[in-house]
Design a protein around this nucleic acid. Structure first.
Length: 573
DNA sequence: GCCGTTTTCGGCCCGACTGTTTTCAGTCG
């Protein structure tokens, strides 16, 4: 069974938790947590390298010792250190760390004083009033823990960013009208345009003397006030979303925006750089000898570190600081760069709009071309088009096109199913009649890595222009397929096939790291809406945002090409 | 446990809020 980086990362996280409870050296604990994060985001499976006898790549924060442990975990599935720690502290104790208000010190107290090793133990003790008597605990904390335990079944999952947008925009609108407020921005992973968000961080610049947190917690959507002070507040909305507010003076807005946008790793790197220059950065500004010398804007802070402003989408400690220092930051793709959409559905299969309405909507968005790509016959539930209906659709597109007035050029296409063995769900003769072939998997997501890889490689050997939603993931619902992605990229480059960044908010597939890997492999990305209605075309914007997180520039994206360039690309197959 | 154009030893980001420990530790981001 393959052992993924995520699993190794989990081992390191558990070691960190248990070391925390044992009161180990905090920097040693941090080293394990940093390594866990690095591993969980690394695109190449390390266990596979180990199995092939190859050396591990040099990764930040992973030195000789952790490298040895990675090899040990890859080879044995476990780790002697973890086994030893589990012998000293029952593993369920670490679980208590996830409860709000409980950190290593209090968990340790609970374990040593009351022998509490699980959430149910804790609940029992709290109900008997034993917890409040412990040092460092009190009645309020006991109550808070009971509430958290009662709710703990609905664990805090990250939500797709698009799904929280309405709530966020409503709050921003409200805050802008609060007296004293000068400026409002969403920070955090929302501003970095991550595909999912855990909570929302809102930053406000306000004149002194106004109680903005008070107004914030009074908003009609607030269900519960978790914390409230003069400069910050934290609430849970009725829809379950946690929102944190920070209020700063206008002159600190840039430094605060930088700080609360993160990522944490990016901030730490900036602060270390500042320190090397005799400066101190905090959320109020940049200081030299106690004197504030910058901070009203983000650019003022970066300028002191001799860097241009790094776009929020890149602030993930994935080489952006080195690139900024060397003047080699990418010129990121923008919405204006997109000229068309190459994967859309109509009412002929499982969409809702007519071809004409789709075209008009695309024109209204400023697009120049639009591919109509309804489903192939195997997709029965989606009313996939058989040969007869497909040919009728092709005729209809010709008629609409010659009648004119659409504002966009239509391309004749189909989203063809990739069958379990890698064949396509359409005859070669029909494939040849299409302007563009988009191929996608819609089933057999759990094939072995080897079978899934050969399935995709075989698909790529046929007349396919775009491999759609290549990993098949659905955020929060379906994991990406197991596949040798490097091999797929290599073949895609050889045969001249693009990979899709499907812009549906629940797909966003490829993800940011895969996009970057494709770019480095020289494979074009096509950012498509996969729209099932005219309104869905607007989802393209989410695709652009994710593409930016993948460091994509205009030249990396197929549908930033002019129509003539696009046609030249399509004709090569 | 990691890391190094001042370092192979001695550092490791920084501040706000809460509850309770009557002066601050613990937690969180």
């Amino acid at each position: 069974m393959p052992l993924y980086n995520v699993r190794i990362s989990q081992v390191f996280e558990e070691i960190a938790d248990l070391l925390d409870i044992e009161e180990a050296n905090p920097f040693r604990i941090r080293a394990y947590r940093n390594a866990a994060r690095t591993l969980s985001e690394y695109h190449q499976e390390l266990a596979a390298l180990v199995a092939q006898g190859q050396p591990l790549p040099k990764l930040p924060g992973i030195g000789a010792d952790l490298g040895t442990k990675i090899v040990e975990i890859a080879q044995t599935g476990s780790c002697a250190l973890l086994d030893r720690l589990r012998g000293e502290v029952p593993p369920a104790v670490a679980y208590l760390l996830s409860l709000p208000g409980l950190g290593p010190k209090r968990v340790r107290t609970l374990y040593h004083e009351l022998a509490i090793t699980s959430p149910s133990h804790l609940q029992h003790a709290a109900e008997q009033g034993l917890v409040r008597r412990l040092p460092g605990f009190g009645p309020k904390l006991e109550q808070q823990l009971l509430q958290a335990l009662a709710k703990h079944l609905d664990t805090q999952a990250r939500l797709p960013r698009a799904s929280v947008r309405p709530s966020v925009e409503k709050l921003l609108d409200y805050l802008l009208r609060v007296p004293g407020v000068r400026q409002v921005e969403v920070a955090g992973s929302y501003r970095r345009r991550r595909d999912t968000v855990g909570d929302i961080d809102i930053l406000v610049a306000a004149a002194p003397g106004y109680d903005v947190p008070f107004a914030f917690t009074a908003h009609e959507d607030v269900d519960e006030v978790l914390a409230q002070g003069t400069t910050k507040a934290s609430v849970r909305l009725r829809n379950g979303l946690q929102v944190d507010l920070r209020v700063v003076r206008p002159e600190s807005f840039g430094a605060a925006l930088l700080y609360f946008t993160g990522s944490k790793a990016h901030n730490i790197a900036l602060r270390l750089m500042a320190r090397e220059r005799g400066l101190k950065i905090n959320e109020y500004g940049v200081y030299r000898d106690g004197q504030r010398i910058a901070g009203d804007s983000e650019s003022s802070v970066y300028a002191l570190l001799q860097m241009p402003v790094i776009p929020p989408e890149l602030r993930e400690m994935r080489g952006e600081i080195e690139a900024a220092r060397h003047g080699s930051l990418p010129t990121l793709l923008t919405w204006q760069d997109l000229r068309g959409d190459l994967h859309t559905h109509t009412a002929a299969s499982d969409g809702q709009s007519s071809i004409k309405d789709m075209a008009l909507a695309a024109h209204a968005l400023g697009l120049e071309y639009l591919a109509i790509t309804d489903h192939s016959p195997q997709q029965r539930l989606a009313r996939g088009l058989n040969e007869e209906r497909l040919l009728a659709q092709l005729d209809e597109i010709d008629r609409l096109q010659s009648a004119g007035g659409l504002g966009v050029t239509l391309l004749k296409g189909m989203e063809v199913d990739i069958l379990e063995d890698g064949r396509l769900d359409l005859s070669a003769a029909l494939l040849d009649r299409l302007d563009i072939v988009v191929a996608a998997m819609h089933d057999h997501f759990s094939l072995s890595r080897a079978r899934q890889t050969s399935r995709l490689l075989r698909a790529l050997d046929q007349r396919v222009h775009i491999l759609a939603h290549p990993t098949g993931r659905l955020i929060g619902r379906r994991a990406p397929i197991a596949v040798d992605f490097a091999l797929v990229l290599h073949r895609a480059r050889e045969v001249g096939c693009a990979l899709e960044l499907d812009a549906q908010p629940l797909r966003l597939d490829l993800d940011d790291l895969h996009c970057r890997e494709a770019k480095e492999a020289g494979v074009l990305i096509s950012i498509n809406s996969d729209a099932h209605s005219a309104a869905d075309l607007r989802n393209l914007r989410y695709g652009v945002e994710q593409a930016r997180r993948g460091w994509l520039e205009r030249q990396d994206v197929l549908n930033s090409r002019t129509l003539a360039q696009l046609k030249a690309f399509l004709k090569r197959r």
